[in-house]
Amino acid sequence: MPWTRNEIAARAAAELEDGFYVNLGIGIPTLVANNISDATNVTLQSENGMLGIGPFPLEGEEDADLINAGKQTISELPSSAYFGSAESFAMIRGGHIDLTILGALEVSERGDIANWMIPGKMIKGMGGAMDLVAGVKRVIVTMDHCNKGGEPKFVQQCSLPLTGKAVVDMLITDLGVFERQLSTGRFRLSEIAPNVTREEIAAQTSASYDE
């Protein structure tokens, strides 16, 4: 049975290490926050200028001056720090963030990612995604293996405008986990969701990858 969205997020959360500074994207990555074990001390960064994102506020304690990058109300922690956008992206671009987990429309077999634009349809802008994939030490993508039309999203070459080239280190879908190897630059299928077969994954993937 393929993993649910929350199971994908839980698998991604297993990649977090004690002491990590992490930036989470919107969608499945947001669910990662609920799956971090209590034993792992992780600091979440919000690119609009905060380290140490706390949980959603209690009703009545919402503060319009305290939001995450998705413009949702959040809360602060005793360890939180605020800063401006220039410093926020200096820490992203400067390689000080250990890990980012992002959603994607497509990932290519060489680690390219497209997640910001569908020409003629979705014209919203890239926000901080291009800075994150270029600057953060490790990039994990969580996404459904196929789109709503059943077509593969893990492809030979992205058809949509790129967010970054050869930047994805790990891909976690509802069917399994693919890790990109430094030596070859190719992905290797390293884990399979329960009761999913290698053949099923191959049939739903147009990218070439190592077994």
Partner: peptide, 15 residues
């Protein structure tokens, strides 16, 4: 007035 785009909250029980 300070408008909020996406109001997200948790309940006391979940806290």
């Amino acid at each position: 007035e300070k408008k909020i785009e996406f109001r997200t909250v948790r309940t006391k029980e979940a806290a």
